[in-house]
């Protein structure tokens, strides 16, 4: 399974050349560090889908000695692995450019990434090939554009919830958020596995 995760790097040797400049660009234009962490994390896992949406790729992977469960697991574990790597690289870059960032930025960036992954991964296996890049783009912009608005809306109108959140102690808040994200991620993982098991190539 490690091979399946490593495959992404072999596939994307060239794209990785763009990776650094993109991150540097975001750093130089002084985007919020959390945002930079998010972009960096998304890079490899979502690029892989440009390959994985092809029927041929699925035929290849499924003809090799891998089970479908493993193929999906490699997606979900790989996303975490590449996210951690991306966080490392981005932190180094931020550090080199003397830009300040906090653990909270990393936490927000990675949480957003994991949520985004959890919502989009199952879609990749439901939608017909060819639409996937489009869906990623649209959902990404939707998330970026509407996401904060929704949070604000919720904050204003559902005071019960916001009060509840505000009143939580910091450790509880963090643990709670981590748990929620983990649960969402695992549910997404299981859903995708079920979908993928039933697919025909």
């Amino acid at each position: 399974m490690f091979n399946l995760i490593r495959r992404d790097v072999i596939l994307q040797k060239r794209q990785l050349l763009i990776f650094l400049p993109v991150i540097l660009f975001f750093i130089i234009i002084d985007k919020h560090p959390a945002w930079t962490f998010l972009i960096a994390s998304i890079f490899i896992p979502f690029n892989t889908y440009a390959y994985d949406e092809k029927v041929e790729t699925n035929i290849l992977l499924n003809s090799l000695p891998y089970t479908r469960t493993e193929i999906i697991a490699s997606r979900y574990l790989g996303a975490i692995v590449y996210m951690l790597l991306a966080i490392g690289v981005t932190s180094l870059a931020l550090f080199a450019f003397n830009k300040p960032f906090t653990m909270i930025d990393i936490a927000i960036g990675s949480s957003l990434f994991l949520l985004f992954a959890a919502f989009t991964f199952p879609l990749f296996y439901i939608l017909k090939p060819g639409h996937i890049t489009m869906v990623v783009m649209i959902s990404f912009f939707l998330l970026a554009a509407i996401g904060p608005a929704i949070v604000l809306f919720l904050a204003e109108h559902l005071t019960a919830i916001t009060d509840f959140i505000v009143n939580l102690s910091v450790p509880v808040l963090y643990t709670g958020a981590t748990l929620v994200i983990m649960v969402v991620y695992v549910i997404s993982w299981v859903t995708t596995t079920v979908i993928y098991q039933r697919k025909a190539f």
Partner: peptide
């Protein structure tokens, strides 16, 4: 099993060496 399909199923943009690097570790 060794398989050969009608048409290419390998990643088009890669060279044979890279394809081997992806496929080979799958087999004991």
């Amino acid at each position: 099993i060794g398989f050969v399909y009608d048409g290419n199923i390998f990643f088009e943009g890669l060279n044979l060496k890279d394809i081997k690097r992806i496929v080979a570790p799958a087999y004991k």
